[in-house]
Write a protein that binds this DNA or RNA. Structure first.
Lengths: 226, 226
DNA sequence: CCTCAATGATGAGGATCTTCATGGTGTCTC
DNA sequence: GAGACACCATGAAGATCCTCATCATTGAGG
C-alpha cells in the first residue's frame, strides 16, 4: 500500500510518515504542489493525503490536475477549520474525503482504509439515512433529491451523527468534534442547533431522524429500518 | 534547557520532541494531566508546553496546581481555535503564553526562547504600544487602565499586529493567521474588522495606531515614538 | 492642475450563532 | 397518581460576523 503525503509542514510529514510506516504503509512525500504533481505523474499511489494550503500550486489545483490527467487515486484533503464552507466549488474538484486540522491520526488511517478498501467501486463517502443523503465533500445535504441548505453548525452536527448512525453522542463529544473545544457544562448550543436542524428536516418528515437519548445526548437513526 | 511536553497526541509529542532535540533542548513528556503534575513535582523544567485538552485533569488545572505548589516555570498552552474566547478565567490561572493549533513549530520555539530568556523578570508577554496595552493571556485590551472590550476578530488582528509592531501585514497574511484559511482575494473582511477596531480605539485617540499601508496592508505603530 | 483608475473606508442589511428565560416532558419516589 | 426534580424544547433577543454597494482618498499620467 503506497501513500503520498503532500504537505509543507515537514514536522507533520515526519509524524505522519512514521505513523503510516507503523501501519505497514509505504510512504512517499512532497512539500509543495509542483513536487506533488510530479510524483503523482511518475508513480501509482494507492492513496494521496493532500494539504490544501501548500506553497505554489494549492491543493485544489493538484487534485484537479491529477483528475484531468486521468488519475483516479483516492485523495484525502487536510483542511484548516474555516476553509471548509466557502470552498465548496474547490472541494468538488475531485477529492474523495477530507479531514479538518487538528485531526486524530487514527481517524486518518480509518479513512484511508475506508477509501482504499472500496476503491474501484464508489469512492467518495456519501452518508445515507433513508431518503436523507449527505455528501461531506460537496458539503451538500439532500432529501428526495432536493437540497436542504444547512448552516455550518447544523451540517457538522448532522455529519458527525450520520457518520456513526445509531450511535449516541453526548453534548461533550459533539462540542469537542464540531466546535473543537471543551464543553463548559452550561451552554445549550448543541440543543439549539439540533432544533434548527430538526426544523429544516421536518418538511421532509425527517426530524425523527435526530433522536434525543434522554440523559445522554443525541443520535441519528434510519427510520426506514425500523 | 529542560522542557516538558504534556500532550496526549503521541504523534505530536514525537514531532515536537525531535524538533526540540534539534534545537538543543532536553525533552521530557507526559501524556495526561496526572502524569504531567507528577513530573512537574519531581523535576525542575525551564519551560512546560501544555495542551489544554488532555485526558483526566485538564490543562488549566495542571497550571493551577503547579502554581499553587509554588512552581513558577514558564508555561505555554496549546489550545484549539475556538477554546480561546470563553476561557478567559481559565487562562488566568497562571499560564505565560499560548499558541493556537495548528501552529508553526518555529513560532513555538520563538516563544519558548522569549519566555525563558526573560524568566525571573516579567514573564507573561504583555504587548504595549504607548498607552495601549494588550494581554494575550488574559485576552484583555486596556488603554489608560480602562478595558476596551474587543471581539474575537478584532482582538486577534490587533494581537497579530502588536506582536510585530511597525511591520506591515498583507490581508493575505492576516487572513491566514486570524482565520486560518487562505484568502480568496475578493472579501474585505479584514478592512471591516480593522474599521471596527479603529472605532473602538478612537475614543482614546488611538485609532491612528492602526495604520493603512496603501497597496500593501496594515500595521501598528507606536505614536509615542514618533 | 485635472481626470481616471485603483484602493481603502464606511454604512446598511442580513446571515449566523449564542445566550437566556420559560415552559413542557419524562422519570423517580412516595 | 401526585409531586418533585432533572432534562429537554422552544422562542426571542442580542452579539458577532460577513457581504455588498457606495463613497472617499490616493497616486499616476496627461
Amino acid at each position: 500500500m503506497k501513500i503520498l503525503i503532500i504537505e509543507d509542514n515537514r514536522d507533520l510529514v515526519q509524524v505522519l510518515s512514521e505513523g503510516f510506516a507503523e501501519n505497514g504503509f509505504d510512504v512517499d512525500s512532497a512539500y509543495d504542489g509542483i513536487e506533488g504533481i510530479g510524483k503523482i505523474r511518475s508513480t501509482d499511489y494507492d492513496c494521496i493525503v493532500l494539504d490544501i494550503m501548500i506553497p505554489g500550486i494549492d491543493g485544489y489545483e493538484v487534485v484537479e490536475k491529477a483528475r484531468e490527467e486521468g488519475k483516479d487515486t483516492p485523495v484525502i484533503m487536510l483542511t484548516a477549520k474555516d476553509s471548509i464552507e466557502d470552498r465548496v466549488e474547490g472541494l468538488n474538484k475531485g477529492a474523495d474525503d477530507y479531514l479538518v486540522k487538528p485531526f486524530d491520526f487514527r481517524e486518518l488511517v480509518a479513512r484511508i482504509n475506508a477509501l482504499t478498501r472500496r476503491h474501484s467501486e464508489l469512492k467518495r463517502p456519501i452518508l445515507n439515512c433513508g431518503p436523507l443523503m449527505l455528501d461531506p465533500i460537496a458539503r451538500e445535504c439532500k432529501a428526495d433529491g432536493e437540497i436542504i441548505p444547512l448552516r455550518r453548525r447544523e451540517f457538522d452536527i448532522l455529519e458527525l451523527l450520520m457518520r456513526f448512525e445509531n450511535q449516541v453522542f453526548t453534548r461533550e463529544r459533539i462540542i469537542a468534534h464540531v466546535w473543537k473545544k471543551e464543553y463548559d457544562g452550561t451552554s445549550n448550543v448543541v440543543d439549539v442547533h439540533v432544533k434548527y436542524l430538526r426544523d429544516k428536516l421536518r418538511p421532509f418528515n425527517l426530524d425523527v431522524v435526530v433522536v434525543t437519548v434522554r440523559g445522554v445526548g443525541y443520535k441519528v437513526i434510519c427510520p426506514a429500518y425500523e
